[in-house]
Write a protein that binds this DNA or RNA. Structure first.
Lengths: 177, 177
DNA sequence: GTGATGTGCTTCGAATTCGAAGTACATCCT
DNA sequence: AGGATGTACTTCGAATTCGAAGCACATCAC
């Protein structure tokens, strides 16, 4: 974190090295995500989002509010409402009002939900291992983890909305037609 | 530490190191993808897929068939048909029959399509730089590129089908139709 | 206490994606 | 040739996602 040029984020194009890295990253993750999704659908009749929600509930032993549950998984509350409704209809979670906040909804995992997670988790892990970790060395895994953790934390701290990132001095205008 | 190669892809759970790497990777790319998508929509009224298609056409100067164009971008031909139709209706590409294969459709970039790409590319690159490359050193970029290129090529070479999750018991035969 | 603002969640509509079935052309086998 | 198989692409229907608008509750100001 020593040499951080303040002007790097200006108008400079990406160098070939960076471009290749960017494309490889996006395509690899896209492939991985589709493979994982297909496996989850086949083995447990779950979408990736649904699995993420169940896994997050399994992780934190208590119940979570809709907003806490959505954090980092979906980008709209309505999407979560839909998925939570499906999971509830499938008997994998329960929804109930919070005693604390009477406008919040607490979501909790049912026994069937926990079983479903346990059912698909091994296969999920196996796909990740075969597609992602097999061609990597232990050193690669550590580097990748360090890099992506940094990137993720960086993005989380950035203004999530495009709300005035920095008092655009000069041309921010978009001559649209 | 002893490496049991043969059983790595078996039933072993991921070690905490690997799990953290996996989650960080997926979440970071998800965040990046959403940010990029929003930017493309705002600046050029394009979805990420549409931009990828246009960029791919701009890269290879000639025309491409639908299948070539879809490769690595969408995972169903029907999705490409839909998007190509939208792009054609917007005047960004043209579709015509191939003189070689009379069942293939050649897609080519129009002048307006090239202009659109040039219009959104700087902003796209800027988002990628700000979100992805800013917190990374040159060494990180190189490592990430090397790792993800390897992973991507590994996935491309794998059997794309998810068949035979277990040793083939039961029938896979289609005695129908 | 009453009103104004903010938070949590849910409909509602539009856009996108995929898989399965269908059509048109090409290629291979006998 | 003639027929079977394979390839390229296009409808068609189902499922998912997001954003905007709306409702219910909470919190703050006066």
């Amino acid at each position: 974190m020593t040499e951080t040029d303040a002007q790097r984020t200006e108008e400079q194009p990406l160098r070939p090295e960076e471009l290749g890295t960017y494309f490889a990253l996006m395509e690899a993750v896209s492939l991985l995500q589709h493979a994982v999704e297909r496996h989850l659908r086949a083995e447990g009749d779950l979408s990736y989002v649904q699995f993420q929600l169940l896994a997050r509930l399994a992780g934190s032993d208590g119940a979570l509010t809709m907003t806490e549950l959505a954090d980092g998984v979906v980008y709209s509350r309505s999407g979560l409402t839909h998925q939570a409704g499906l999971l509830e209809k499938a008997g994998l979670v329960t929804r109930g009002p919070s005693p604390d906040d009477h406008r919040a909804t607490l979501v909790a995992l049912t026994e069937a939900g926990r079983e479903r997670v346990d059912q698909v988790l091994p296969g999920h892990v196996q796909v990740a291992r075969r597609l992602l970790f097999d061609p990597l060395s232990a050193q690669d895994v550590e580097s990748l983890g360090s890099i992506m953790t940094r990137v993720r934390d960086h993005m989380r701290d950035l203004p999530p909305r495009s709300a005035a990132p920095r008092r655009g001095r000069g041309g921010e205008q978009r001559a649209n037609s």
